[in-house]
Design a protein around this nucleic acid. Structure first.
Lengths: 338, 338
DNA sequence: TGCCTGCGTGTAATCGATTCCATGGTCGGC
DNA sequence: GCCGACCATGGAATCGATTACACGCAGGCA
């Protein structure tokens, strides 16, 4: 593959001049520029990003470590992150942690070794020493969706508190009183926060949340199924189940279906995270929608600010309830899904 | 950040020795090795992958360019590719083309500039000059799922021919006679092949495929909706619709629902590509399942063979029909979805 | 006319690793 | 006891770019 030297030889100038042309440095004569450009064209030269990165100490690459690529919420997030990054001239390398802390660490380490310019993380667990070290070590870093309390980096996330209150009110209005939740891992912020918000909202209606009504999930479908089965085996099973992410909702759907329950009738089901498929399930699922695209853009913006020396801002955006039919028929609602 | 020189100084040896320890070269004394390792630990040293790549001319990175991250089929593919690559010591950089040729080229170029060791592509269009150039230029390359006819690189894909024949037989058995297809872009191999296989299978039952019954889609949901609406506006609308991917199926579902049609009854619907959600739609969707995981693994294997100088093999795996209820009630079938 | 400024250009150092080659020391074989 | 082989080690070249510095030349000003 042709290198900058070949181009220099072909154009009859020095490598310095070639480099200057390529980086549009002002001090190059028009004649030289033209000859270099012609030579580049002729040889099909492309600068070696590896060499360039070594010299300049920047890779123009962002790392994005997400908890689970198979979760549509995260792929949508990844897509918007890549789009926003590309607009700013950055590439994105995605690492999929599959909700496994050791895999998350593997990716973080790999990305750091590659000297990415900044790191976007949605942490799988609550306390990776590696992450702490990276943050202290001066790697520009931003948490998105989930975060780790002890680490002082900007956080970009959605606050589902109000939407959860709306959801509980909605369920209450429909006569549901025995409300259960399938929670995510307590080690994740989104895992514990959603339970807390749910408990608080229940409290406003004078309803308590017994331990039996808190299923321990891990944001994966299988755990949603197990938690739901456990609910149904209770002497007094819940009449509404709220799953803290879309994959666990899928599992819950499975379990309810297997028991022959009519969802929205015998039992209500609601999900955190809205995805296109929820419109088409039987019945369509009432869900809390995050502004995923805006979240991705805000995260990239914050990270770019950090990298380029500006002061980044933490961002919290509101989530909103989208009413469909899985909790029962309800009064007409302007925001209801199609 | 500490470099190899700092480690050498700290351990009281030369950089050459440090490098040898790190690369487990045999010619290092036990004493030296221990001192180096201790120094590495003390300084928290991590080798700079950029510098290493420049020198060794390999990045231990694979590029994967897929047509659409939002399509669950491709994210599952991406996941299995990453997993298989990781097992072989490679990282994967994913480029999302969003079914746009120019975006695909952008990613291919970026990946090439980064000097990835090999490229896995599921091409969005039929003839990118860049791709041809890359293949000729000696970049190890493998096509997965879709491919470009003129370019001589290994192809790893699923053959849906038999499954499509099974599907048509299934539809015919259920009394469907007016069968339509929503095709992908003709520029993609999967786009045209599936139509051809469908037409051939229809032929075996003495049914023809009129032009009106071939909807032009682009593998995106919106196009599935449009094509379906056009079908329904026909003087003699089809009684069965086969969508060539899962996203267009989603669109078709929308359109049918909007018209108040009972799917599986008034009209049959089937999809190419099976995904977890199809179990939960109303009704569950009959689909053709690809062995996605195996596809990803085989693709990585072929690419690694190419990179490491072995002879790669093209691989074609069979797809299979999964019968659910969207085409009507059918005789019990052992492979039917849960 | 002479000097200073500044532009265009080239030479060479540099980024952080790997690796070839030379060197000194040890050891075994004869 | 000598010689060759081999091992452990260090010095220095190298990968392909960017960029500090030096230099020559042209033009402007006094």
């Amino acid at each position: 593959m042709a290198g900058i030297k070949d181009v220099a030889a072909e154009a009859g100038v020095s490598v310095a001049t070639v480099s200057r042309v390529l980086n549009s440095h002002p001090s190059v004569s028009e004649a030289a520029r033209a000859r270099v450009l012609a030579a580049v064209e002729r040889l099909g030269y492309r600068p070696n990003a590896v060499a360039r990165s070594l010299r300049t100490d920047q890779t123009r690459t962002l790392g994005l470590v997400i908890s689970d690529v198979l979760n549509p919420y995260f792929t949508e997030l990844a897509r918007s992150v890549e789009e926003a990054a590309r607009a700013l001239g950055y590439s994105v390398i995605i690492g999929n942690a599959d909700e496994r802390p050791e895999l998350q660490d593997h990716h973080v380490r790999t990305l750091l070794d590659r000297r990415i310019d900044g790191l976007l993380v949605s942490p799988t667990d609550g306390g990776s020493p590696l992450m702490l070290e990276a943050a202290r070590g001066g790697t520009p870093m931003v948490f998105v969706d989930r975060w780790i309390p002890g680490i002082d980096v900007p956080v970009v996330r959605a606050d589902g508190r109000d939407a959860i209150r709306d959801l509980v009110a909605h369920l209450h209005r429909l006569g549901r009183r025995r409300l259960a939740i399938i929670a995510g891992p307590a080690a994740t912020t989104t895992g514990s926060e959603r339970v807390e918000a749910f408990r608080a909202a229940l409290g406003e209606h004078g309803i308590s949340l017994p331990d039996d009504y808190v299923g321990q999930g891990d944001f994966q479908a299988a755990s949603g199924r197990r938690a739901t089965e456990r609910f149904l085996a209770l002497p007094e099973p819940p009449d509404a189940v709220f799953a803290a992410d879309n994959l666990m909702t899928l599992g819950a759907l499975d379990a309810l279906r297997a028991r022959g329950l009519r969802i929205g009738d015998d039992i209500a089901l609601a999900a955190f995270d809205d995805i296109p498929w929820f419109v088409h399930t039987d019945p369509p699922v009432t869900a809390i929608a995050q502004p995923t695209g805006e979240l991705g853009r805000a995260a990239v913006r914050a990270l770019a600010d950090l990298i380029e020396g500006r002061t980044p801002r933490s961002v919290t955006l509101p989530a909103s309830l989208v009413v469909r039919r899985s909790c029962g028929e309800s009064a007409p609602n302007p925001r209801s899904g199609q």
